[in-house]
Design a protein around this nucleic acid. Structure first.
Lengths: 230, 230
DNA sequence: CTATATTGTTACCCATGAGTAACTTAAACT
DNA sequence: AGTTTAAGTTACTCATGGGTAACAATATAG
């Protein structure tokens, strides 16, 4: 009886990896109050782990950061991490989820305002530069690309395309309402993201460069370009 | 007599690693013609290795690419690679050297022309988008950042700063001669590189997007921005 | 107060891949 | 020719680090 508490076994398609699955479902019948507390605590710990991991990944890079490093930062041992994440890559995936929510949230907010396309684009840029201050987002931007798992790779691509598409829509709206000049919205959206995401690789809020100054320069560049109007 | 042909031993500072050093210096006395041929061949092979490595690194990433992978691409075995490069990281360093020469060469060319700052900047952008078509350059852009060796890390930073500085100089020149509007040249230079380097991560010459179209959109964005002039 | 699920630990396993030693073959100089 | 150097091979070592098994402690439920 000792070892039938926890698991059953399921052989994946390839038959190479064996996956543990729970047979006992997470007890949902008990009082939601106490359960809530547990779930809350768990979520907080997961968040902390993501923060620590993201910070480490940003400093040393994904492959140069071991799970032991992350565990140490979080003051637990490596196997404990596996209680919160499926594997190393899952950390990146969870960072991606956070990023998706925040960026799409920003887009919701921006597109909800009844402004013309250009102003919406400005607002998006402002918000985005703000968002990429967060280590988790920066970590995602830097490491979206590195996905061993095929499904994860596709999901990442899909989310990325989704966001790019929404920005493209803003640009198109701007061209329609006359606030943005005629241009190739696809290329412009990509270039914009290249520049903004690039910022996340070097900019620190604590650094010497002022946040407002940065935003101003970005907006001016995107708005006016650099050529002097004589 | 068998084993005193080749080597002496030298203990590095740390005393941990032992390094082989040649006592027999590379014969330079013999005819330069034949030597040239050897050096030439060697250089060609090194170039081929760099090409193969860069292609692999761009496809799978540095850490997911083993030296065996590269050796296989080059149709030799791993130890042979060590005849051409010091270690794995040395491949990145050699790619960096290539990149440095090409980009600084472009800058030489661009700044040699007696044009105003804005036109020089335009010419640089045109040339740069051309250059980042090359796998070796793309590899360098993607992996400058990953340097375990401290000296290599510093060298990389220095080269990068050097190039950025030269572009900043062009922008400043443009502001002086009135061809470029007043701006923070440091930030603009960085943003420009962020956008351009970003391109190297996704653009393929063989793809559906036309090279000229891309260059046009970049130049327009940098020149005019996206705001419609009413 | 006891049973059960939740967190966490110590001690492993084992695949991977960088780097090396020692030997073989091919080329080139005299 | 015959010897030296370059170029390449096979067969290893060995550190690293992701992942797991099995056990220990702590909460929570009934």
């Amino acid at each position: 009886m000792g070892n039938n508490i926890v698991v059953g076994y399921e052989i994946s398609k390839i038959g190479k990896k064996i996956k543990k699955i729970k047979l006992t479902k997470p007890a949902l019948k008990s009082g939601p109050r106490s359960n809530m507390k547990r779930e809350e605590k768990r979520q907080l710990k997961l968040d902390a782990i993501l923060r620590h991991a993201a910070a480490a990944f940003m400093e040393k890079g994904y492959y140069k950061t071991s799970l032991d490093d992350i565990a140490l930062l979080h003051k637990v041992t490596k196997p404990t991490l596996y209680y919160y994440v499926k594997n190393k890559e899952d950390i990146l995936i969870k960072c991606e989820d956070v990023a998706s929510v925040r960026i799409n949230g920003l887009l919701d907010q921006v597109t909800a305002c009844a402004e013309n396309g250009f102003v919406q684009l400005e607002n998006f840029i402002r918000g985005y530069v703000d968002i990429i201050t967060d280590d988790i987002i920066r970590c995602h931007i830097r490491h979206r690309g590195q996905r061993e798992d095929k499904a994860a790779r596709n999901a990442s691509l899909k989310m990325h395309r989704g966001i790019e598409h929404r920005v493209r829509e803003i640009i198109i709206k701007g061209m329609d309402d006359g606030s943005i000049r005629d241009c190739n919205s696809t290329i412009i959206a990509i270039l914009l993201f290249d520049a903004l995401n690039g910022i996340s690789a070097w900019y620190r809020d604590e650094g010497q460069l002022n946040h407002e100054e940065l935003v101003q320069q970005v907006l001016l560049l995107v708005t006016e370009g650099v050529k002097n109007k004589v």
